[in-house]
Design a protein around this nucleic acid. Structure first.
Lengths: 232, 232
DNA sequence: GACGCCCATACTGTATACAATATACGCTGA
DNA sequence: TCAGCGTATATTGTATACAGTATGGGCGTC
């Protein structure tokens, strides 16, 4: 009976190790490099328009050009980098119009996702969302602005998973990354607004109110854009 | 006066040649290969689950593995191919659930696009849509099923450009490709339904009725899925 | 001094070579 | 006969080398 499920503690540890396949943790260099570049872009170290020369990146990361090339191409597919044939790659520098279009699509999809989240309302996820929300509101009150970007990302990621549509989740993640580093992190008043909106969205989701959740999520995206635009 | 604009016919021809930059037409091998593989997949020559071995593709296209690798990775980013590290690439073989999720997203975005098209209603584009629609309806009546897939793609592409949101247009194109080859091209009755729906959508767009256009476009996507599902 | 040409340089595109890893087959021993 | 092991083979991952193409600066000419 417990032959398959529950064995001795020692065996358990071994099994646990085996069930987390080590192989899947060994990511190819191209992915490691891609993550590093992605972090550098969203973290603001690589600024829009900056050239990405394969040789230099390869030297910087201590790898050959090939993994770097693959990483650059992958990030280009995500929209974080622009590659011009025979000229090279630069960190994507979107025009105001392109940012607007991206935000427009993102707003629609965030709305859709909130609607799905309200429909498939899951207790465990809701609990996690409440925790993140509480942490966010606490950080806002104590003016711990440093923790806010991480909490914000966590809230949106978790809400994304609540919609139970992986295609949508993936799309939203890349769309968020594409425009994220164009908006400077707003001031404290902006943070208050953001987290109040988060609270309202979560309320609507918990209440199972699809229409309201969708509407609030859409507005949330658009208001963030408007705030950032006026801030600049 | 006519030094810059209108010169003799011979010079005109030269200018015309120069203004269509030849350089931008010279696509890298990786893109050419990617197009070839894409065509093979959507055309049904490469079937879902089929392995894509770099060496063989390289030999088949008469290039080295490098461009093939890039092409495969690019198509993986589009969702047409699945790459498992150290195992290789296969033509994407989506589960019923994944197809459903993709179609769900696509329906929402097609709805959004139709809404935008109704808003930005452009005479020239509307004329082209009418032309394509007429050709489609004619093909349906004369049972020229061979021409329908092309006309269908044209209709959706043109409608996509009518929305004037390139981010959305690009997303929709890849989403269409992702699921397209999973649905067998339906019978004549299905074609009649499809093109009647096209007509209704176009009517709503021309009338500037955003709500109706959006609703009809969403239903169009979902009904196509349902038909294909029952056909199978 | 300004224009155009040519060459040096830098970088990307493509090919080839080698290393690391997965898969399949056959072999041995019970 | 079959399980387990080990090797052979196939394939991907990474590195290096060379070719093709853009870019900028120096030089000569007018």
């Amino acid at each position: 009976m417990d032959d398959t499920e529950d064995q001795g503690p020692a065996d358990d540890a071994i099994l646990e190790l085996a069930e987390q396949p080590l192989g899947s943790l060994h990511r190819p260099l191209s992915q490691v490099v891609a993550d590093a570049i992605r972090q550098a872009i969203v973290g603001g170290q690589f600024t829009p328009g900056m050239r990405l020369v394969e040789d230099r990146l390869a030297a910087k990361f201590g790898v050959s050009r090939n993994p770097v090339r693959e990483a650059v191409r992958a990030l280009a597919a995500e929209g974080l980098i622009t590659v011009v044939p025979r000229h090279g790659a630069v960190v994507a520098d979107l025009s105001a119009e392109e940012v607007r279009e991206t935000v427009e699509v993102r707003a629609t999809l965030e709305g859709m996702n909130a609607r799905l989240a309200a429909r498939h309302c899951d207790q465990a996820v809701v609990r996690r969302l409440h925790d993140i929300l509480a942490a966010g509101l606490a950080a806002v009150r104590s003016a711990q602005v440093g923790a806010l970007p991480v909490l914000n990302a966590q809230f949106h990621d978790t809400l994304g998973s609540a919609g139970r549509n992986r295609v949508l989740t993936d799309l939203l993640r890349t769309l968020r990354e594409r425009t994220g580093h164009f908006f400077p992190t707003g001031g404290p008043d902006h943070a208050v607004k953001t987290w109040n909106e988060h609270a309202e969205i979560l309320n609507a989701v918990v209440a199972g109110d699809e229409e309201l959740a969708s509407l609030l999520a859409q507005r949330h995206v658009k208001s963030a854009e408007a705030t950032a635009a006026t801030d600049q």
